[in-house]
Each structure stands twice: as C-alpha cells, then as structure tokens.
C-alpha cells in the first residue's frame, strides 16, 4: 500500500493547477502583445475576460495550499513546494493583471496607428515569455539549470525598456501630437519590464523549492 497516497495525489494536483495558472498567465502576456501589434481589440477583450479565470484559480490554489498545511503538516521538499506555490501564484496573478492592463491600453488605442514601428516591445515580450515558459518547465521537471541566466535576461529587458523610453521621449519632443500613443507604449514597455521582474521572482522561488537555497534573481 502506498504511504500517504491521498496526500501525494493532492500535492500532484496542486502542482498541476499551478502549472495551469502559469500557462494561462503566459498566454495572456503573449496575447496582449499580439493584440497590441495587430491592434486587435477583440483579442484584448478576450484577455480581460480570461483574467477572471486566473483570479479564481489563485483563490482555489491558495485554498488547496492552506488545506494541505492545516491537515497534512508537510515537511522538507513538500513544505518548500507548498510555500513556493503560495508565493508564485501571486506573481502569476500579477503577470495576468499586467497583461490585462496592456489589453486595456490596446482597447484605448483602438485602430489608431502607432507612433513608431514596434520592434523592441515585441522583443521584450518574447524574452519575458521565454522566462515564464522556462519557469514552468523548471517547476515541472525540477531542472533549475535553465533558470541560471535569468538575471542576464532581466538585464536585457531592462536595457530594452530604457531604449524604448528614450526613443518615445524623443518622438514626443519631435511630434507632440503623438504624445497619447507614446504614453500608451511607454506603459506597455513598463508593464513588460515588470513581467520580467515577476518571472525572476518565480525563478528564485523554484530554485528554493528544489534546493532549499534562497537566491535573489534579477
């Protein structure tokens, strides 16, 4: 007879739900930039609707964690896993909220043309998505080697944000009429920079879950 069968099944289910939430947050972040690039307000509305699913998942996962803590007295790697789940769902929720904020911006921009071709913003998004995807892989496989370069990746996102910011300031000086769109894009870049930070938080928690060592990334 397997020892603590139900407990182990509950832990596995918890991890599955966290992965599901992470996947949804990653998709939201990806779709938000697709919607921005294509000025697709329908896709933006869809992101905003899906945010509610992620919010519900956060409560559900938190309840699962509390139940395991209260009833099973988890120890060692199990304790670290539950602690990690409770922390990273907040980051996933924040990522989806930021994706929602970008979607809101897309709806405000509507079909107006952007003040500049979007090159660095999609690059920032691609790097951030890659980081979230690697977090999910590491969470599932316990292979934390793919998280080692997160600080460097975050530095690239920060540098791109700085570049976008400078470029947008120059544009608004040259073409004050584009100030509204430039302001929107600046917020989008800022949100992507924050998504990178959340990915670093998640990676740092996963390293703790696997090794027991606390390490700051980003």
């Amino acid at each position: 007879m397997a020892v603590r069968k139900e407990y182990i099944e509950d832990l596995e289910k918890l991890k599955e739900e966290v992965l599901r939430m992470g996947e949804l947050a990653k998709e939201s972040a990806k779709n938000a930039i697709t919607a921005l690039v294509q000025r697709d307000t329908e896709l933006a509305s869809k992101i905003l609707k899906e945010n509610a699913i992620i919010d519900d998942l956060e409560f559900d996962i938190e309840n699962r964690c509390m139940k395991l803590l209260a009833l099973q007295q988890p120890m060692a790697v199990d304790l670290r896993t539950i602690g990690t789940c409770m922390k990273i769902i907040t980051d996933f929720d924040r990522i989806s909220d930021l994706a929602g904020d970008i979607a809101e911006i897309v709806r405000r921009i509507g079909h107006e043309p952007h003040v500049k071709p979007l090159i660095d913003i999609p690059r920032m998004s691609e790097i951030a998505q890659g980081m979230i995807a690697d977090c999910l892989k590491a969470f599932s496989s316990q292979d934390i080697k793919i998280l080692e370069d997160f600080s460097e990746r975050d530095d690239v996102i920060d540098a791109l944000f700085d570049q976008v910011r400078r470029e947008l300031i120059t544009i608004t000086i040259e073409r004050p009429r584009g100030i509204a769109n430039a302001g929107h894009l600046l917020f989008v870049a800022l949100h992507l920079e924050r998504i990178g930070d959340h990915a670093c938080n998640i990676a740092s928690r996963i390293i703790y879950m696997v090794t027991g060592e606390k390490r700051k990334l980003g």
């Binding site: 397997a2 020892v3 603590r4 407990y7 120890m75 060692a76 304790l79 027991g212």
Partner: peptide, 19 residues
Amino acid sequence: IFEKPRDKRTEDYITGRFG
C-alpha cells in the same frame, strides 16, 4: 532537518513517504 534535509532517507521519513 525539517526544511532541507540532506539525506534522502530523512526526507522520505519526515515527508511520510517511508514505507
């Protein structure tokens, strides 16, 4: 010991997977 045991046998025991 309870947060990050070094030995797999300790971990198996304190997480209740010992059997």
